[in-house]
Design a protein around this nucleic acid. Sequence first.
DNA 1: TGAAATGTTGGGGCG
DNA 2: ACGCCCCAACATTTC
Length: 480
Amino acid sequence: MKGLMWFRRDLRICDNPALVAACQECREVVPLFVFDEPLLRSHVFGSACVGFMLGCLDELQRSLGDLGLRLHYRIGEQTEAVLQAVKDWGIDAVYWNRDYEPGARDRDRRVQDRLSQQGRTVKTFKDHVVFEAEEVRGLTGEPFQRYSAYRDRWWNRWRAAAPLMLPAPKRRADGRETQAPQDRPSAQDLSYERVPLWIEPGERAAQARLQWFLRGPIHDYVNGRNLPAIDGTSKLSPHFRFGTLSARTAVHAALATLTAGGPVFRADVFTWLDELVWREFFQQVLTAFPHVAKGPFKAKAGLPAPRLEGPERDRLFAAWCEGRTGYPIVDAGMRQLNQTGWMHNRVRMVTASFLVKDLRLDWQSGERYFMQHLMDGDLAANNGNWQWCASTGTDAMQGYRIFNPRIQSEKFDRDGDYIRHYVPELAKVPVQWIHEPHLTPPDEQEQADCRIGIEYPAPIVDHKAAREEYLALAKQKRTP
DNA sequence: TGAAATGTTGGGGCG
DNA sequence: ACGCCCCAACATTTC
């Protein structure tokens, strides 16, 4: 039997269910990756994301080569490209790991239907999550809408039957390794820029980063994860996005640290695991409520409408995108995103809250901008977190969560190290003024080479006034 | 994984 | 010794 292994967001050899099955069941296995031309042309993702993906593919090609398999590339609309490849190569069975985004599910259903009509076998596998949506349900069988209930049930499932990890497939005797690997398209071929990658791509780098994280930072995660100036988080998000690391592997490895001896702090380890469960929660929300991809989880009465469209709106949005709002922690975050394709999670919340609550722009513009600039841009997680910040999501505390950028800054970047790194014009501003540089006395502004309104902007909105306006409008809408 | 306003308590200074 | 005020620290409520 001749099998096709269709790689999508599972760019790894280890613990890959579809790949293992294909290798076990087929005499010959052809691995395929399709560059989704319509999707790439739409520029939903940015150069950092595409560059990361290309790096992952290069390593996948090498490691498949070591197994005696040759990775093939096609460019085009995915459905047609896969069907054409199946026809060209005389494939009997097609293997892939499931994707839960609404668009991907429609596409996969089409591919599956067409292949079935042709009498070919299709086998799909759970891989991107530890538990799929249907596996974590309440007693009524309904999907959870509250994280806390979901988390409790998730851990019950884990204790009852933790999914096992699979070994990497054995080296094959197909003899394909003698063939030269197929050239892949470059970033330029796909009309993306080649940009420096601030997180190393590939399965090997993912494993190394995981091991590094589990030996060190995870044991001070409760505090360390909130400090954007230090390397205190796993930074594994792009790897989970592209499947260079499986969530199963990560959970097993983190739990193993609890029994491995050495300095171990349960609360820290479980706080990190909680983040993985959040990720699964948002996957579940997207699966069970696919409309969230297009709009609010709940059509909320009681939340102020975004500001009207127009030049004023465009000016505020551009200032947010480019990191010149006059709020240092917001600007540092946006510049980190623009420069590196990644933003610290604490700062993601601060910048998102600022867009929605202070500037009162629509959260979906922010969601789109993050997707275009994050190398870990993942529909489910990004959408879920934006809805959380915009108070349109599953969270109970509707509307009242408004971050104060100064307090967040003082609490989590006390010395201003993070701010100074990404907003260099503030480098010489004394720590006393670093969180509110517009209050710096004029002579100290001169000394620090940072004149407000010249080298660094004054705040584009007044937080206190914006907060009060937001709450007043919310109250007005709630009690008409 | 919010922040501000409001309420409560207890210690210290002071007359 | 006592009442009074102030304020910090903490808890609760409200937006």
